[in-house]
Write a protein that binds this DNA or RNA. Structure first.
Length: 604
RNA sequence: GCCCAUAUAGCUCAGAGGUAGAGCACUUCCUUGGUAAGGAAGAGGUCGGCGGUUCAAGUCCGCCUAUGGGCUCCA
């Protein structure tokens, strides 16, 4: 029988130190294993153990908060010593020593006033205390080490045998950029050695899917410090992949009534001032000057589309009007946040603006959500939705924000769609629904977005003519399905580990003629495939057959066609499947039909 | 932008103050092979950049640039 380390009572985890007789009798026992509840307790105590170790190694260390997070735990602290990655090993070692000592973890309660004087020399703890509303606080003690904490904790440090410190990072005190920077150490802990090993192995495997690594291997894109940080350069293979994605998505938009339009890359600053971008988004915009006039390089495509709307008169009958553009935008992102294709300074959005009547908002939002869902299903993506509400910097009245936010919520609620709320995460001109997808190591990235905007229509005074021949203000819905091609292709790459589905793969078919005499057939076949808009490569290098097959396999190409005497003679092809490594012989005609089928079955 | 780390050949990486290395890729030649590496030879580097310490710096120090992990921000 495994040891009991806590109880679940109602929805709360209560440790053995805090459990009353009633709870230990009636609560659900949490055993020392790898259940989510047990791991929460284990990791919380692991954070304390780490703090204890740090305190012994760096006696002047002061601690802020040490919570359990999705990926494990961390503790924020400060010390006069510089701590680097190398030091993690020493801390881990110290932790192991302390764990072995088998300190029992004790809890006692004191008044907040007592706590304030107890931690009088510790400004970080004072800050933590000032954020605690109750008059009583609990202290956990293991050996010499004491920490202000509400628990839950393990009964003893002896359980903390399988802990790994994973990374060290700086973290602003309270997440505030203007506050001082503390040191943060992340770690994970498990109940068993196997679970820890498995977790670390999983991370290793996930790293192999990293789009930066695969993008490099497959020649999709690169960055060059002579060109500039955050400015991706697309190589031919990446270009082919991207062109296919763009083309499918283009048709998908046309089918849904979107009109292709295009705005200029830079617009006069006066216009950005009118929209509010200058005041609210200015630090992200690159400015330049032409003939002594200031221009801003567009960080968004909305102004161009608004101008297009303004260019002609619109009847209520025309609405909703949908303009779309693969808009290239530049945004000044802080240097520290750039990250492969996931966060860059130049990217292309699959952007559109829907101009509609107020009573059309809900149905339009739902239509966009369906569009998103269709695309995500094609790629087999799991995604989550988040509603982002009014940020600190914003334009427009509170009522307008309330109406806009409400319309988004209603659209989701009425369709029974689950969503989270990101308070203060909205765009400065309106609230939004963000579509988030996880990368290979579980980080969430915003891809698609749907934003309801009453403000820019007002600022630009755009109108349509209603049934009674009156001018009425339309509402704008800003939306992107993939978000940006850069980020989405990054996510796709990790999702498929570079093994893209046939219709997207940069090279879809590799043809391998066994010897020189088979080349004419290979070229003939390749030509037919190119006519079908399939990307083909012929591997006729002076290498052994095995070598060329190996190279093709390694390149993650979906289909390999081998041609030899038999195939030339019978007009057949020998097909090798990438995943199954199976071989099949079919006629050339059957093969071309198969390819056509594969392409036709893809429908955005 | 801030904290910590990293930067050596096209790629992956070794080299811890004393004459720059390996594997893969590339070029040439031999080999014409039926489903995951045939053989040989060759070419390729201002060791990210600038400055400093030293008789001597890829190696030590400083600054800059870029990259990675976080914080913050966002498609």
């Amino acid at each position: 029988m495994k040891d009991i380390i806590a109880f679940k009572f109602g929805n709360q985890l209560i440790d053995t130190q805090s459990a009353t007789d009633e709870i230990s009798k009636n609560g659900e026992a949490i055993f020392f294993d790898n259940s989510p509840e047990a791991l929460e307790v284990i990791r919380h105590s692991a954070a304390h153990l780490m703090a204890q170790a740090i305190k012994e190694l760096y006696p002047d260390a002061k601690f802020f908060v040490g919570p359990v997070v999705e990926e494990g735990f961390y503790y924020d602290f400060k010390t006069s010593t510089k701590i680097g990655e190398e030091d993690l090993k020493a801390i881990e070692k110290k932790m192991a020593q302390l764990a072995k000592k088998g300190y029992s973890i004790e809890k006692y309660t004191i008044s907040k006033d007592e706590a304030v004087s107890k931690f009088s020399g510790d400004e970080l703890k004072q800050l933590v205390l000032s954020n605690i509303p109750s008059d009583e606080v609990s202290i956990y003690r293991q050996g010499e080490f004491e920490d202000l904490c509400r628990g839950p904790h393990l009964p003893n440090t002896k359980y903390l045998k399988f802990v790994k410190l994973t990374k060290i990072a700086g973290a602003y005190l309270g997440g505030d950029e203007n506050s001082e920077m503390l040191t943060r150490i992340y770690g994970v802990a498990f109940a068993t050695k196997e679970a820890l090993k498995e977790h670390l192995h999983m991370l290793e495997e996930a790293e192999k899917r990293d789009h930066r690594k695969i993008g490099n291997q497959m020649g999709l894109f690169f960055f060059d410090d002579k060109v500039g940080a955050g400015l991706p350069i697309w190589l031919p293979a990446g270009g082919r992949l991207r062109a296919k994605l763009e083309s499918y998505l283009f048709k998908a938009h046309r089918k849904r009534g979107y009109q292709p339009v295009r705005g200029p890359e830079l617009l006069k600053s006066d216009l950005w001032k009118l929209s509010g971008h200058y005041q609210n988004y200015g630090e992200n915009i690159y400015f330049t000057s032409i003939d002594e006039q200031e221009y801003g390089i567009k960080p968004m495509n909305c102004l161009g589309h608004i101008k297009i709307f303004q260019h002609s008169l619109h009847s209520y009958r025309d609405l909703p009007l949908k303009f779309f553009e693969y808009g290239v935008v530049h945004r000044h992102e802080k240097s520290g946040v750039l990250h492969g294709l996931f966060r860059v300074r130049e990217f292309t959005q699959d952007d559109a603006h829907i101009f509609c009547r107020e009573d059309q908002i809900k149905s339009e939002v739902i239509e966009v959500l369906n569009f998103v869902d269709t695309i995500m299903k094609i790629f087999d993506f799991e995604y989550s939705l988040e509603i982002s509400t009014r940020p600190e910097k914003y334009i427009g009245s509170d009522e307008i924000w309330e109406t806009a936010t409400q319309s988004l919520k209603e659209a989701l609620l009425e369709n029974g769609i689950q969503f989270d709320i990101d308070e203060g995460g909205g765009a400065f001109y309106g609230p939004k629904i963000d579509i988030k997808i996880r990368d290979s190591i579980g980080r969430k990235w915003q891809c698609g977005t749907i934003q309801v905007d009453f403000n820019l229509p007002e600022r630009f005074d755009i109108t349509y003519i209603d049934e009674e021949n009156k001018r009425v203000r339309p509402v704008m819905i800003h939306r992107a399905i993939l978000g940006s091609f850069e980020r989405f292709i990054g996510i796709l790459t990790e999702h498929y580990a570079g093994e893209f589905p046939f219709f997207l793969a940069p090279t879809q078919i590799v043809i391998i003629p066994i010897k020189e005499g088979h080349q004419p057939y290979a070229q003939e076949l390749a030509k037919k495939l190119v006519d079908m808009e399939v990307d083909v490569e012929i591997y006729d290098q002076n290498e052994s057959l095995n070598k060329r097959i190996r190279t093709a396999e390694k390149s993650r190409v979906p289909m390999i066609v081998v041609l030899g005497d038999r195939e030339v003679e019978n007009r057949t092809i020998a097909l090798r499947d990438r995943r199954e490594r199976t071989k099949s012989n079919i006629t050339e005609k059957e093969f071309l039909e198969l390819i056509k089928e594969k392409l036709d079955e893809v429908e955005f």
